[in-house]
Nucleic acid binder design. Structure first.
Lengths: 209, 209, 209, 209
DNA sequence: CATGAATGAGCGTTCATTCAT
DNA sequence: AATGAATGAACGCTCATTCAT
């Protein structure tokens, strides 16, 4: 009875550990080569298991891709969701920029997976883009518009401002190779400098004088 | 004798026409699926010829990819190269932003191809990144630094400023699907709005008061 | 001690029940797709158990196949074995035809499995074909030959007569789909009509005038 | 110009030769193992070419199967179609039986393919079974019924009579292994004996006295 | 220049079988 | 007696590339 419980727990742990290993391997491969360019062979090898065993956990390539994407999308939305209407515009924008830069630094593969999916047409996340993503951008755009109306921010199209923040912060994950090539090769402070530069330009450009 | 010459000229013209058709088809396919995800079948069909004939012009997939990339890189560099030391900082930055937005609007596939290559690690353009690209960024960074030293621009890390402009302008090509989903679906003025927003924020943020 | 005995009995009963379920499932799948076309997955699902558990009872696909075949062969032989030398030829042939038609009606899968195995070359039942089957056919052929010699049956090659009966009766199981398509679609009396037709033609053709 | 024509002819011949080789190989493999049990590897090897080259001619397994089936069905129907209303019943039935036995002798694989398809449910030929096949059986049944009405044949259900002829004649192709095992092993006259036996039983059983 | 024919390597996926529990 | 986890081999099919013409 007890044995059985332990054995079941052990089994569950194995399953969880393997699922995590697979998702991580899949993230790294899908993000680098896109859906079509990625191969299960490479993912399986990175996850340290045979291809059929990988398919035991995710029975098709597509379902694995979707699983990885879903995890990524949730992470991706979180920082924007945290932007509060009743906060100080400078603080809120600053915090958002920092959070996004932190994501680029700490989980660049997630950013690249998202970029790759969009580059390739976004077919797998059409619903996400037109649903939750558009909804939250609409909501936060209203907040920014209110700040502008209240004179707490200089006039700017809120959606394009959000695009600017997305683009500039994600650039350090998605275009990492280019960034490294242009900067002194082992500039480990690049994320801090990036964050400062973006915050400075955006805030100086938008805060009232 | 004369016939032969005419025939040679004809052949050459055919060759040129076909090369162009192939490069265009290849650009659209490589940019949509990445190097590994693209297939010669799809490119050949888009170029209106058989696969063996395509391989007559570019004997391997890689060489076709490199040829497309090289065309793209040259285009990509041109606007930055046009930034002049003796111009007005506001004009020069403004013009650069506009030129890059125009590229995103008029040739989004080129932008996406470049993004895709970098996402995949940039192995095919390592030399370009560390050579001509780094060189020109270094050169233009010196110009910006001079502007700052002369008090014509507020202090900012020149390289990260350049990254900001790249990121924000290319975003409208690379993330087109996302941009369309977030904006009112048929917002045909998005490139103009983008250009205005970016210029406003960057210039207001950086021009001396 | 007693507990153990009960438990052993219980285990045995379970084993028997499961074996039956497996054999039945296997019969339906093997007969539908042939040995190579059948999958253990499908058999296990039909038998209501996991694939490894199925393999606990029959450790390889082949051994399961052979087990099902053997059950089928025994059934298959029984009616012919029942043909008696001292009976009336008309009665004996009539009874044999009826018994075979009944088999086709009541257990068409068995007939199809046998047909499938023979179609595939009969490798799994070579010994059966050249051993018991040939022996019983030889024996019954002698009976028929005696009937002919005694003037109770008109001259006919006994073996080919047996083939005729096999072929015509099994046809209603093996070619069921075709038979249904040709007849009015829900002709439920087809087995009775078949039996009558075969008996009439064979007996009228062979009984002395 | 002439060269071109020759070359085109050569190419066409190659194609035809290969198609024939493939169809023949496919017939032998599909007829032995059924659709699911057959493998392209085996067919390709038998046809003397690589698997991708086989798929160059028939781009999917299913299309190859359908091609083989269609050839077979046409052959299969021909003898029945030849049965004439204004002929003598004895002659017509006799000729039909002979023609079918000849098919079993000369192209047993075709017969087996058909049997295999029907055994496995006939999904690929549903339309054939309910369309042309049923139509021709209906037509010929009417002829037989007319013979009976005219007193030229004793009463019998025409459709079941046709089934009898099908079953008995095809038996020598479909159950060849069994037939060989039961008969003296190298009985090369089995087709002649079969034909005689079937004709005798059927005609004696059905012709008026 | 152009293409039909051909193939080795590899793709996503299935399958019979094994192992540990 | 039963099953989750695992895998080598093979399956149908695709791909970049070659060859002959």
């Amino acid at each position: 009875m007890l044995d059985e419980a332990i054995s079941k727990r052990k089994r569950t742990r194995i399953q969880t550990v393997n699922r995590e290993a697979i998702l991580q391997a899949a993230l790294s491969v899908f993000s680098a080569y896109g859906y079509r360019g990625a191969t299960l062979d490479e993912i399986a090898e990175k996850a340290g298991m045979s291809k059929p065993n990988l398919l035991y956990y995710f029975p098709r390539k597509k379902s694995l891709y979707v699983a990885v994407l879903e995890e990524t999308l949730a992470q991706w939305l979180a920082p924007l969701a945290a932007m509060k209407a009743d906060g100080d515009p400078a603080d809120e924008l600053s915090r958002y920029i920092d959070a996004k830069i932190a994501m680029s630094r700490d989980n660049p593969a997630a950013s690249r997976l998202f970029a790759s999916e969009i580059l390739q047409g976004g077919g797998a996340i059409t619903e996400f883009l037109h649903g939750p993503l558009k909804a939250i951008v609409d909501e936060k755009s209203r907040i920014i518009a209110d700040w502008i109306a209240a004179g707490r921010l200089r006039p700017v199209d809120p959606r394009h401002l959000i695009f600017m923040i997305w683009a500039t912060t994600q650039h350090y994950a998605d275009f990492d190779v280019q960034v490294r090539a242009v900067l002194a090769s082992d500039d480990e402070g690049r994320f801090k400098h990036a964050s400062e530069t973006i915050r400075r330009v955006v805030l100086e450009g938008l805060l009232p004088r």
